[in-house]
Every structure is written in structure tokens, then in C-alpha cells.
Design a protein around this nucleic acid. Structure first.
Lengths: 225, 225
DNA sequence: ACCGATGCATTGCAGTCGTATTGGAAAGAG
DNA sequence: CTCTTTCCAATACGACTGCAATGCATCGGT
């Protein structure tokens, strides 16, 4: 076997470029040549690593979900062992929201993919079970244990993400709404409003080295066709 | 003045075709020729009624929001005068959710536009005030009157819409989650779960849609990039 | 040392895109 | 009837698209 390039590293490099293009110009501006230019490579190379455009899109899509998953992992990890359920939920959700400019950019890509897959039903098929899983996980953290409430909480997160991206809500507004909702679910007094550490965005690995993706939606979104 | 065609009717006809194309193939499949074919007219005619593609998109975008607005009006109208706040909110929100196949189709278009405008910030600018207005209206219906809760409820609606479109939630699930949330907000027992006929759903995605888009058309200049 | 697989750049091709232009049919106004 | 304005079809054009094909340099295995 000749040469010695890390195949997967190249693919990630290209996928990163794709997300950069998609974030600032939309998915429809994503073409082989555009992505290649953004990545600083030749169009031929892109073709070499992705035999078809769909394959490239598919890879980028899964990269998006992987990245957001990693963000949640980091944020939760910073919480320490056995955090109280409410803090755990708040941390996870906050980690998934596009709260700052960088995350907003990433969220735009996720939103674009969301619309993209809405037309290709096969794409999001395998994501349903993971959503359902997440709902059950949330339900287990709730005092009531009610699935219906968990379903609503997840939807609330998604909606906050959408409005944050649209610019209708400010970051603080969104977090206020989230806390108000958690107040209802936990039948609780306001939590300690000061302590918001525990979820520093972009600490550690994640997006430090590469500009790219994270998402306002739920973890896991994979396409395949 | 020769001929006598209803200018606006033609434009609506074309916009309808556009929405049909966008619903089943995505916004990126929307081209002058495609839309023309879907509308059963010549491409030249489309060009005659919309001098530029952006103008056509802009018109279609406002058509989407108009339609969902009308649905809410119809649904609320069917409630009679002075409905209890909870019923009013539930009706309005349910009217905005893509609960059946037809509404799902429309919702897909709205979602596509949402992603579309995310890249063109000027487009959604004038929608912020209307969202804020809606939030205040919701708050007025709530027992607590809390803005933060209203903010959350609106977000919950949007999220339910997204998940319904994605297929992660079923219609019944979404309505259950909505009712559960209303239970929390109204501190109430379950409402009468039976009465759901009387009105048809058919809606676009939440208030994501908004009138008009980016550049105001000046007579002679056309900008393109 | 040679061979053959791999990495990658270049080019060509058929197709679609948005838009400008042109020309003719239709129809109220004089 | 003859204008004159509107409606709309047809075509041309340049830019762009995804993809296949080609060619060459570079290396590892033998």
C-alpha cells in the first residue's frame, strides 16, 4: 500500500469546510468546488474522498450529530459524578442550545440539514429510536417520571434552539424560559441563579481545533440513502 | 389597458406550485422551470410575473405565513366568543402544528424557508416584533402572566412542530405533551379530551414563517451573487 | 529495482441554473 | 380599423453543477 494519508482525517477536513460553507451561505451553496475551495484543496481531491456528493453530505451530517454529542459529554463530564437531576438536564440542554455566536453558526448548519432531511424521509429514520431513548432518559430524571412531560421538555429545547437561530430570542431569554419550565417540572423554587459554571462551551477538545458544527437540536442525526 | 388578467391570482397560482415543489423536493429544487412545470405554465410566464427569483421566493414566503395566520383565525373563530384562556391557547397552537399529512406538507415548506432565511438575516428581521407580540399575548392568557412561561410555551410549540415534521413524534404524542404542559401552566386537571372535531388542521410550521424577505425591489436594479 | 496501487490535479461533458432578449398574439382605447 | 400596451412563449447566453475520465507523481511490497 503506497502513500500514507489518514483517510478519515481528510474526510473530516473536507466536512469541516462543508459546514463552514453551509453556515454562511446555506446548504444550497454547498458544491464540490465550493467546498474544495473552502478547504483549500482541489476539487479532484474532494471527489477522491467522496465518490458522490450524497456521500459527502451524509458524512457531514453524521459529523454534525457526533459533534453535538461530544459537547454534551464534555458539559456533563464537567458536572462531576451524580449531579442532581435538574442540574443534569439543564446542563445537557444548555449544551445543545446555540447560545453564542459560534454555536449559532453551527446551529444554522444543523437547521439546514434538518430541512434537508425533511424531504428525504429515509435519512432521519434511524434517528427516531435515539430520540425516543432520549425522551425516556429525560423522563427518568423528572420527579413525575412522566413521558409526556419529557416529550415536552425536549420539544421546548428544540424550539428554543430554533428561535435562538432565528434571532427572535436572546440567549438570556431562552435560558430564563428553560429555567421557568424546569421550575414547573421540578415544582421547585428558582435554582441558584449565580452558578452557571459547569457548562463552559468549547472548553477542551470539541471545537477548539476546528471550526464547525454543533447543533441546536437533539443529538444524533444521521442520513443515508 | 389591454388584456385583463388578475395579476395577483397568477402570482398565487405560481406560488402554490412553488410550495408544492418545495414540499416534496425541498427548496433547492425550486427553480423557475420546475415551478413553471408544476404550475402547468411556461417558464416565460413565471418570469413575467416575477422579474427575479428572489421576488418569487419572497412572495411565496409571505404567502406561507398568511396561510397559517388564516388557519389560526379559522380555528379560533370556531371557538365562539370568549373562550377560556386554556382552550384558546390550545386551539391556536394546535392549529399551527403540522398534525396531519396535508399540514405536514405545508410545514415542510415553512421549515425550508426557516433554514433559507437563517442565511439571509434581513429576511426574518421584521418577524421579531410579531413573535414578541405573540409572546405577550400568550402571557396574558396564562394564570401566572409570566413572560418566561409564555416564551417557553411558544418554544414548545415550535419544537413539537419540528419533531412532528421530522417524524420523531406522532400527532397524538405531540398533543399529549402540549396538554401536559398546559396542565402545568394552568395548574389544572386534564381538560375534556374528547372534543377535537369541529375544525380542520392545516397549517405551516409555527410562527416561523413571516412576511416577506430581504431586498425590497427597486424598479431597475437587480442584485445577484 | 521494478511494479502496481494509491493520492491527487486537470479537463471535458452533459445538464441546469437565472436572466435578458426577442417577437408575436391578444385586446382595450382612440 | 389602427394603435399601443400587456401577456406570454421561445430562445440564447454565460455561469455553474455533479461526475467520469485521464494523467502523473509517489510510495510500499517484493
Amino acid at each position: 500500500m503506497p502513500k500514507k494519508v489518514d483517510h478519515d482525517e481528510r474526510r473530516r477536513l473536507i466536512a469541516d469546510a462543508l459546514m463552514r460553507v453551509a453556515a454562511e451561505q446555506g446548504l444550497e451553496a454547498v458544491s464540490l468546488r465550493h467546498v474544495a475551495a473552502a478547504a483549500g484543496v482541489s476539487a479532484g481531491m474532494v471527489q477522491h474522498y467522496f465518490r458522490t456528493k450524497d456521500e459527502m453530505m451524509s458524512f457531514a451530517l453524521s459529523a454534525v450529530s457526533e459533534r453535538s454529542e461530544a459537547r454534551v459529554r464534555v458539559a456533563v463530564g464537567a458536572l462531576g459524578a451524580d449531579p442532581p437531576p435538574r442540574a443534569l438536564l439543564r446542563t445537557m440542554i444548555a449544551a445543545l442550545l446555540p447560545l453564542d455566536d459560534a454555536a449559532r453558526e453551527d446551529g444554522r448548519v444543523a437547521l439546514a440539514f434538518l430541512a434537508y432531511t425533511a424531504v428525504r424521509p429515509a435519512a432521519s429514520a434511524e434517528l427516531h429510536p435515539s430520540t425516543a431513548e432520549f425522551v425516556h432518559f429525560i423522563a427518568r430524571q423528572l420527579p413525575s417520571g412522566e413521558i409526556r412531560q419529557a416529550t415536552g421538555l425536549l420539544a421546548l429545547m428544540e424550539g428554543l434552539g430554533v428561535y435562538l437561530l432565528g434571532g427572535q430570542y436572546e440567549a438570556e431569554q431562552a435560558l430564563d424560559a428553560l429555567d421557568a419550565h424546569l421550575d414547573l417540572l421540578f415544582g421547585a423554587p428558582a435554582p441558584d441563579r449565580t452558578a452557571k459554571p459547569g457548562w463552559e462551551f468549547r472548553t477542551g477538545l470539541a471545537s477548539s481545533n476546528t471550526p464547525s458544527i454543533e447543533l441546536a437540536d437533539e443529538p444524533d442525526r444521521v442520513e443515508r440513502r
